[in-house]
């Protein structure tokens, strides 16, 4: 294949598959994006995982365990998609551990209360779904296929979160107040999950030309706000944005500007929580080393036995 054939496939909205020729920058962009996505899935296990032992019932523990297990699975689907581009999974993990690749800064916020688990499912997974549904049509086949699986599973994640928020909102005044605090904590970080505004997102145009991205950050952000505000009203909770108002003319909600300085600070990944996330990950990896070694030793022994037999 050549550049011309690649361009023709992209223009026809066809998919690119691993054995196809592709421009170096297309490959690099995908590796960076898919790796960051995979890292986010497995780091995302931590803030919610902290709540498994403290979930308020056996049923909620089972649900949360299943959700955290899904996040691990999503990481595996995505590392697999990245590997189809010729990179090595161990190297990607090294780059997460030595901070030369990033994960979503949304996982650098704290989860001090049970309602945070609800808000994460409802808002963070809701924003992730808004981002990920168009990625099912990504021009790179293995990434799109991984996203189809992931989106199917995310639906349960968002619903269980919303249901936690609904239960708390219909509960005692203290429970409802806790739900409101969680909404206050997670609203703006969720809004910022869509990335910088279009005017400040230099890679968007190229990613859209390549069919990796289908909508701009601001388009997806608007879509998320429009879908989520009525849900907050249904919960009887107040969205912490004084500028939020329905715009009849546009047929969309107008909303305020996030604190982009905070976003820039969070993206840097410096501070106590990012250090904790990475050290937890590094420790888990290091503590699993003997298991990986033992599995290889066992497999070798079995092969020797088969040869002898």
């Amino acid at each position: 294949m050549s550049q011309a054939e690649f361009d023709a496939l992209i223009d026809a909205d066809e998919r690119i598959e691993p054995d196809d020729w592709m421009p170096d920058d297309y490959r690099k962009t995908l590796v960076r994006q898919i790796a960051q996505h995979a890292h986010s899935e497995i780091i995302g296990m931590q803030p919610e995982g902290e709540w498994i032992t403290r979930a308020p019932s056996l049923h909620r523990k089972a649900i949360l365990t299943a959700k955290v297990q899904d996040e691990a699975g999503h990481g595996m689907y995505l590392y697999g998609a990245a590997e189809s581009l010729g990179v090595d999974r161990a190297e990607l993990l090294d780059r997460l551990h030595n901070k030369t690749q990033k994960y979503s800064s949304i996982f650098n916020y704290e989860t001090p209360e049970w309602a945070d688990v609800g808000a994460i499912g409802w808002l963070v997974d809701g924003a992730a779904i808004a981002n990920q549904v168009p990625l099912c049509r990504c021009s790179y086949g293995p990434y799109g296929r991984a996203m189809v699986r992931i989106c199917k599973e995310e639906s349960f994640h968002q619903r269980q979160g919303f249901q936690i928020m609904l239960t708390l909102s219909e509960g005692t005044p203290e429970q409802k107040a806790m739900a409101q605090r969680a909404l206050n904590r997670w609203w703006w970080p969720s809004i910022m999950m869509f990335g910088p505004p279009d005017t400040d997102s230099p890679n968007t145009t190229r990613s859209m030309a390549w069919g990796i991205k289908r909508y701009t950050n601001d388009e997806l952000r608007q879509q998320f706000v429009d879908a989520t505000v009525p849900q907050a009203e249904l919960l009887g909770l107040a969205v912490p944005d004084p500028d939020l108002v329905w715009n009849e003319e546009r047929g969309h909600y107008d909303f305020g500007e996030p604190d982009w300085d905070e976003f820039a600070t969070m993206v840097k990944g410096e501070g106590e929580i990012p250090d904790l996330r990475i050290s937890t990950r590094r420790n888990a990896h290091a503590e699993g080393e003997w298991v990986r070694e033992a599995a290889v030793a066992y497999a070798e022994k079995q092969q020797q036995r088969e040869r002898v037999a």
Binding site: E153, S155, R159, Q163
Partner: peptide
Amino acid sequence: YRFPTSYVLPADVDHM
């Protein structure tokens, strides 16, 4: 509980 259908949502909630 791994399936979205096991979470009954209010009728007014769409897009979830």
